[in-house]
Design a protein around this nucleic acid. Sequence first.
DNA 1: GGGTCAACCAAGCAAGCGCTAGTGCAAATG
DNA 2: CATTTGCACTAGCGCTTGCTTGGTTGACCC
Lengths: 194, 194
Amino acid sequence: MNVMNASPRRKELTRLAAQLFVQAGFDRTTVRMLAQEMGIKSGSLFHHFRDKQEILAAVIEEGTENALVIARKALARCDSSASARLHAMARAHLETLLTDRNAHVVALYEWRRLDPEARAHLSHLRDAYEALWEQVIDEALAEGLVHGDRFLVSRFVMGALNWTVRWYDPDGPRTPDELADELVAMITRSASVG
Amino acid sequence: MNVMNASPRRKELTRLAAQLFVQAGFDRTTVRMLAQEMGIKSGSLFHHFRDKQEILAAVIEEGTENALVIARKALARCDSSASARLHAMARAHLETLLTDRNAHVVALYEWRRLDPEARAHLSHLRDAYEALWEQVIDEALAEGLVHGDRFLVSRFVMGALNWTVRWYDPDGPRTPDELADELVAMITRSASVG
DNA sequence: GGGTCAACCAAGCAAGCGCTAGTGCAAATG
DNA sequence: CATTTGCACTAGCGCTTGCTTGGTTGACCC
């Protein structure tokens, strides 16, 4: 068995697994389906992953890590105004959500199927990501760009953004960036009112 | 077999099923688990429901119907200003979401497990509910209470509200009504800016 | 050119799954 | 009274599931 390394083969298999998990759901995706999609036999799967659970964990882990990387890059790239940083985070969030869509849909909908150990490990990753958001929201509150409770605002914003995976059509008229800007506009027009 | 009637017994079973579906997920909830929780044997289950799918459909149907009823009542009760109606919808949404929580969590997370026929039927119910929202948002746009695209605003708002099932703690300091008012405040402070 | 090792395969086990068939029985119905 | 109906039972069929086992292949290494 191949322990927990990150071979290129494993990455490819993880990507394929994410796709199937989205199409059929984790529980209804059988190891035989996974193997067939990967062009191997079901037994061979367990050379790459300890068990089916580990495949799920791998999918979610990679998606969340990508989200973290992209958000940090976006923040490093923009200037330090609260407005710019808020826009950057919203755009980065939708960028990962919609390009790495499969992995994130799995993370959103199959989280409860993780066993306790995997959930604990991945919780830390997710918390690190959410901490970025709360930090940016804090800055926006301090500049008077938005109003309200820091906890509530960040929850509402993330809810609105994550919900997009249920209705957004990449072939439609709107780009993810436009979406992000619209949301930020919706909650920041209040700025000059106080 | 008991066709599709709505006996009180069946309602009670549906409520219990919703609870189990939330705890374990639809696919991992076996008919034996359902039967045990209901105090009968697994075979007897199929006297009340045609198959397992029908139990899922019943759970979601009842939750959505309740949501519709409560939202309509709330709109009928409040005065006709866009602000009042917006608050009423948000409060009604959180009221159903958090009191009928099990059914709505199932609707949100297990929707894809419905077979095509059930999905088609329930889609109409859900569309009727969302139409209420879009109507109220339209009125708010017309009064200049909120700004932006009607489609986007309603999606963002419903996303923010539905996301609450993931983090809201009924034993915490905030009431659902406070939550609803905070969200409405977040998107309407922009009113006097234009 | 023997040894190593990741990658794969064929075959199948034990457990659990949704669901059916056939029956018992008390209350409602004529 | 006889019959129907509603609800529950027991027993188990037929199938799928995640995973294991034991072995083969071919590329690379000293």
